[in-house]
Design a protein around this nucleic acid. Structure first.
Lengths: 169, 169
DNA sequence: TGAGTAAGTTCCTAATTGCAACTCAATTCT
DNA sequence: AGAATTGAGTTGCAATTAGGAACTTACTCA
């Protein structure tokens, strides 16, 4: 049937996230959004992505509540896309992706990095457990998987309903 | 020309990582690898991915040094795939993806989570700066982008050379 | 001898991406 | 005033890719 990967029958939070941001280009669109890109043509020029694909991606990101579409000019009707809080919460994903690319593809000379202003260093991110404050060691984690929970598709549908209700109020 | 997203001309560590793990299914293949999956048919059954696609993904993950292919039986020739150190370093990416899905799709009732054994809580991951130890606040980061650095394609090519030399020695 | 398993490969079809050109509404240059 | 430009897409077509199922290869086990 040739459609692209469909994770909606998985029961997994990783798959759930990928169902929203896992399409080709989507994460780079979001990277640009964090850099301040808000308009169609800025993305198009920055990424060189096909315009129809960009239009489709923006539409689904808006549908999932990651970006918000706003009219910023009435008279020539013009729109911009801004990260919602939900979208901004994806920053750690971008940071960890960037860090891996830096260390394993570019070998410390990465072209994109984050400056941590309080200390003035290039950010080397580390994960901690917010409950005990300790750094997360690989050995200290157990992966737990509850096969009885909702599928990604079910959870996304419910999420959309909740979004609609929130808007209505 | 209809080929799927090609990030190799970007100059960006995020794009670099996605060039390696950004194909459909790849991150779920890695998620399973972290859960202990090592064999072709285990992945095939767990994901329901087409076998040709799975074979192709495993091949590129091995080529990029994220997985290692080992023969675990001589006589019926049988192979398994294990995460390399480079592959294990992707764990923070999976953790942040999982955390976002948990919070924004499943709403705290996620089907997959990580148990932090030292403190016994479900892991709520937080990012810190490893230089100063402070938590990373969105406001405290500046994104720096050096447009003169290598493209993703150049860096990956160099990386592969380095891998080959390391093997030869 | 026949069934079963692991790890793929091959073949075909259907979706999707990529690309370029085109639309539409309004604004600015000449 | 008319022409060109800008922003934000849409439309149509060709080239790939993913999906699906069957087929191969090389053994083991009953």
């Amino acid at each position: 049937m040739g459609r692209t990967a469909d994770y909606s029958k998985e029961r997994c939070s990783v798959a759930a996230t990928l169902e929203v941001v896992g399409d080709p280009w989507t994460l780079l669109i979001l990277r640009d959004a964090f850099r301040g890109v808000r308009r169609f043509d800025q993305w198009q020029e920055s990424l060189g992505v096909a315009r129809n694909v960009l239009a489709a991606r923006l539409k689904t990101l808006v549908a999932h509540g990651v970006l918000e579409k706003r009219r910023y000019s009435e008279h020539p009707p013009r729109f911009e896309y801004r990260l919602t809080e939900k979208g901004k919460d994806l920053r750690p994903v971008l940071i960890t992706l960037s860090d891996w690319g830096d260390r394993h593809v570019y070998g410390e000379k990465g072209p994109l990095h984050f400056l941590h202003e309080p200390c003035g260093h290039k950010l080397r991110p580390g994960l901690i457990c917010m409950d005990c404050g300790e750094p997360v060691e690989p050995r200290s984690l157990r992966m737990i998987h509850n096969p009885k929970s909702q599928t990604v598709g079910e959870a996304l549908a419910e999420q959309e309903l909740a979004d609609l209700e929130a808007e209505a109020s």
